[in-house]
């Protein structure tokens, strides 16, 4: 790692001002994406601003059919939350499929979606459930939040404070893991929500997580695996690498989506 200064602000306001005053500040929460990057000397921030001890950013709150997950809530906390499991079991399941237990003990939802790794799991749930990303400045719908490979709608001094999910009628996430990294090679999140069916795919897209609107339309009409049996996802915007061709990923999207529908019960 290159040298940097380390700061641990006690409040969100302090974190924002630290971020604004640093030459090239980076937020640090669980650090499970950032630190590996720094260890490879692939980034050189001037300051790491550790927001993990800011109480207001952490925790899970339930309000009717709305679940709000604080930005620095760990994957393990989401996985183990009774509230999440009873309202949106698919979200708890997904959190439990990320990385390994030790990664889940440190990694956070805010860190995952702010990084927007195309193979990360959480973007699948956030987009699939049509969640709202809450920041210190505004609220951003999932559809507006993910802009492309490692790109989000976040401004430079903007900090995610929470992600707000509405309870769907049913939902399921099916993940096909890349054999080495165990990130998602293809992950399909299918949710039947009050606003209609949403199908979000992570792992496969060159531009990161995306929705499969053709499947959504078919499922709105008939929520069954058969409804999407003949829908082929075009492979022209899909990743192709040593772990799987675009053609394979396109095929897996269909398979995983169908299994997710079956998993919705």
């Amino acid at each position: 790692m290159y040298e940097f200064d380390y700061q641990r602000p006690a409040s969100l306001a302090d974190a924002v001002s630290a971020l604004q005053s640093a030459e090239d500040g980076q937020l640090l929460a669980g650090g499970h994406t950032l630190l590996p990057t720094l260890k490879q000397r692939l980034a050189r921030p001037s300051d790491l601003i550790d927001i993990s001890s800011i109480g207001e950013l952490r925790g899970i709150a339930v309000d009717g059919d709305t679940i709000t997950v604080g930005a620095t809530t760990t994957h393990a906390e989401v996985e183990g939350s009774e509230a999440v499991r009873s309202a949106i079991p698919a979200l708890a399941d997904l959190a439990g499929m990320i990385g390994d237990p030790q990664v889940r003990h440190r990694g956070t939802i805010g860190g995952s979606i702010a990084n927007n790794d195309p193979a990360a799991d959480y973007p699948g749930a956030v987009l699939g459930l049509g969640a709202t990303v809450v920041t210190n400045k505004r609220e951003i719908t999932a559809d507006d939040f993910f802009l492309g490979l490692f790109e989000t709608a976040l401004a430079e001094d903007e900090i995610i404070t929470a992600v707000r999910f509405s309870k769907p009628e049913k939902a399921c996430y099916m993940k096909f893991a890349q054999p080495a990294s165990r990130f998602s090679l293809v992950g399909a999140f299918v949710a039947k929500t009050s606003g209609g069916v949403r199908v979000a795919v992570t792992g496969a897209g060159q531009e990161g997580v995306f929705r499969v609107t053709e499947m959504e339309a078919a499922l709105d009409a008939n929520f069954s695996a058969d409804a999407i049996a003949n829908i082929a996802v075009p492979d022209d915007n899909l990743n192709s690498d040593i772990h799987g061709s675009a053609e394979y990923r396109a095929h897996l999207i269909g398979v995983m989506a169908k299994r997710a529908i079956a998993g919705c019960g």
């Binding site: 380390y6 650090g31 630190l35 260890k39 550790d50 237990p101 440190r106």
Partner: peptide, 15 residues
Amino acid sequence: GTSVKSCTVLAMQAE
């Protein structure tokens, strides 16, 4: 009390 990977935690984070 929780298992973590100490190669992916800054010493300062364990303060």
